[in-house]
């Protein structure tokens, strides 16, 4: 459960509080809070855990990790939960 997953910031809602972004995890887009990573910018790769970005990640590292998670099957399952209705 403490697994954090790297993804790419596709959009930042500058007016939001907390600062929220759309992050792409190998094709799955989730809302992610950037408050703990103020230096993160558009198209940066960030390590995300349960909707909160924790640290920036090098692009090559992020892509390799996502690919490995896809091969391992179940690591990305938690991202499949829908947004709140």
């Amino acid at each position: 459960m403490c697994l954090a997953i790297p993804g790419r910031i596709e959009y930042i809602d500058a007016a939001s509080n907390p600062k929220m972004a759309k992050v792409n995890f190998g094709g799955i887009i989730k809302n992610v809070c950037l408050d703990f990573l103020p230096e993160a910018g558009l198209h940066d790769y960030v390590l995300v855990h349960v909707g909160v970005a924790l640290t920036k990640v090098d692009e090559k590292e992020a892509l390799e990790t996502i690919e490995l998670f896809k091969q391992m099957g179940d690591a990305l399952d938690e991202l499949k939960e829908g947004d709140p209705a």
Partner: peptide, 12 residues
């Protein structure tokens, strides 16, 4: 309900 993030619970 299963949520991805605790922030989703706040939205609910």
């Amino acid at each position: 309900r299963i949520v991805y993030s605790p922030l989703d619970a706040v939205t609910i």
